[in-house]
Simulated assay, not measured.
Amino acid sequence: MRLLIATDAWHPQVNGVVRSLEHMAQAGRAFGFDTVFLTHQDFASFPLPGYPEIRLSYATKSKVARLWEELAPTHVHIATEGTVGYATRRFCLDRGRPFTTSYHTRFPEYLAARLPVPEAWSYAWLRRFHGASNGIMVSTPSLERELAGRGFTGLMRWTRGVDTDLFCPQASDALDGLARPIFLFVGRLAVEKNVAAFLDLDLPGTKVVVGDGPDRARLAALHPAAHFLGMRTGPDLARVYAAADVFVFPSLTDTFGIVLLEALASGLPVAAYPVTGPLDVIGGTGAGILAHDLRAAALAALDITRETCRAEALRYTWAESARQFFGNIEQAHGMPPRQRDRHAHPVVGAMEHSQLG
């Protein structure tokens, strides 16, 4: 079997969507799937203003049709709602080919933060986009309940994993010389990540920020005492996690937050707001503190042991994530299509998929 994954989120983006899809491709063989990708690299594209790592594609149904003959997929998963996803969706509907989709990001909230577009309009469009699929994969129970309440149907669970060999408690001098305790944020530096809520906190010790994005210069200018380390990946990122004392996750809009798992796997307790993502990953596990008072949560998290955090992270494996993902693919492709909506219009919304977390 050959699975085609159509996604607007792809390299050079560094984010949870890209990492999740890469892990699924690597695991596919164990489930009988050869996985191929359809991305902005297959079309003419241009950088999104303010987000140069995000490419907006001139994806067309006719180009998808030409590539389809070459790729010859037996199954289709549309990972994002941008131009690549939309063109693939149109092609599948015209050919009567079933497909699944996934809901990664709160695009309506992100769009409303930048433009005067009511969230209700965006959610209506997303219901039409995903409503044509044979199944919508979501990462957490709370997101599933929320989308069901907004009229989405055919929801399927697909959790995420973490590399517990790479991200682990270890001796690290990555942050030597900084006053403790060290409070860490890892993610894209953009308005939707709410990083200012972390940097504005009155906390002892040092604040460290890992990541890049359109808000970096502004945030660095406003908070000269914070340490901005830029983008870190792989072992370099793992050493930073291991050297910190608390991971602070100020986002109010992430649907999961793979960085939460990376922090826990490194033995790092989490402080976050009680919203979708943290509620599902941290909840009542004892591996973090969730509170509307983020400062109080950050300070209380200092008392959590690294052993507690690591034990919780070990529950999340990419093997289990892949089992759910490919199980959903097989189940959905054996089901009759639920809806054939050929009239939704594309939203050039790849920006919402650049989340690093």
Results as ranks from 00 to 15, higher is better:
53 E>G: 09
255 T>D: 11
18 V>Q: 06
299 L>V: 03
100 T>I: 13
326 F>D: 03
46 F>C: 07
133 S>P: 07
118 P>G: 08
141 P>D: 15
159 T>A: 12
34 D>I: 04
74 T>C: 06
51 Y>A: 09
26 Q>L: 12
6 A>G: 06
340 R>C: 10
317 T>V: 06
331 Q>W: 14
72 A>E: 11
161 G>P: 11
260 L>C: 08
135 G>A: 03
221 A>G: 14
266 S>D: 11
313 A>Y: 06
242 A>M: 10
345 H>T: 04
346 P>S: 09
258 I>Q: 15
217 A>D: 13
305 T>S: 15
17 V>L: 10
116 P>F: 12
89 R>Q: 07
241 Y>V: 07
243 A>I: 00
169 P>W: 02
302 L>T: 01
59 A>L: 02
179 A>F: 04
140 T>S: 15
100 T>Y: 04
35 T>W: 00
110 Y>H: 14
342 R>G: 04
322 A>T: 07
119 E>I: 10
317 T>R: 12
85 G>F: 03
217 A>P: 02
335 M>C: 11
42 D>E: 11
160 R>W: 07
268 L>R: 07
152 F>S: 07
204 P>I: 09
156 M>H: 08
2 R>K: 15
259 V>K: 01
300 A>K: 03
128 R>C: 06
63 K>F: 05
353 H>P: 02
83 T>H: 07
248 V>R: 00
55 R>M: 13
86 Y>D: 13
270 V>G: 04
137 M>Y: 05
258 I>F: 03
171 A>Q: 05
271 A>C: 00
341 D>R: 01
78 I>N: 02
15 N>P: 10
40 H>G: 09
73 P>W: 02
9 A>F: 05
31 F>R: 15
172 S>F: 05
42 D>M: 03
282 I>A: 01
247 F>V: 02
148 A>S: 15
51 Y>M: 08
146 E>R: 15
156 M>D: 03
160 R>I: 02
51 Y>R: 10
182 I>T: 13
1 M>S: 12
41 Q>A: 13
245 D>T: 08
214 P>M: 14
266 S>C: 11
160 R>L: 05
211 G>H: 01
30 A>L: 08
179 A>G: 10
325 F>P: 08
161 G>E: 09
106 R>K: 12
41 Q>F: 08
44 A>W: 12
259 V>N: 10
297 A>R: 00
84 V>K: 01
208 V>F: 01
161 G>F: 12
202 D>Y: 02
352 E>G: 13
35 T>A: 03
335 M>F: 09
204 P>R: 08
191 V>G: 04
270 V>E: 04
141 P>G: 12
116 P>Y: 09
104 H>D: 01
112 A>I: 01
341 D>A: 00
20 S>W: 10
307 E>M: 07
56 L>F: 06
76 V>E: 05
318 W>L: 07
85 G>S: 02
15 N>T: 07
57 S>V: 05
162 V>P: 11
157 R>M: 10
131 G>P: 11
88 T>A: 06
353 H>R: 01
109 E>Q: 14
276 T>P: 13
34 D>R: 14
291 A>H: 14
77 H>T: 11
309 C>S: 15
351 M>S: 12
